[in-house]
């Protein structure tokens, strides 16, 4: 009984983490370079630096 409860709890936790992983909360620049691979590294760096210059207090990858 304890083992079944443990397995169910852990699998629920795993499912929650998987759901979080599948729904990233990132900037467009991050998504385009790291996830979709639609921009190259120089474009990523240029856009990140531009974003950072606009709002230096906020990390641009978020």
């Amino acid at each position: 009984m304890f083992r079944t409860l443990l397995i169910v709890t852990l699998l629920s936790f795993d499912a929650f983490a998987l759901w979080r992983g599948l729904h990233p909360h990132v900037s467009d620049t991050y998504r385009d370079y790291y996830i979709a691979h639609t921009i190259d590294l120089p474009t990523f760096l240029a856009r990140e630096k531009a974003d950072l210059a606009k709002n230096p207090a906020v990390p641009t990858s978020h």
């Binding site: 983490a17 998987l18 992983g21 990233p24 909360h25 990132v26 790291y34 990858s61 978020h62």
Partner: peptide, 12 residues
């Protein structure tokens, strides 16, 4: 995964 989600917004 959850730690990275909290840190970067991307669990993977």
């Amino acid at each position: 995964t959850l730690y990275l989600y909290g840190l970067t917004g991307d669990g993977f």
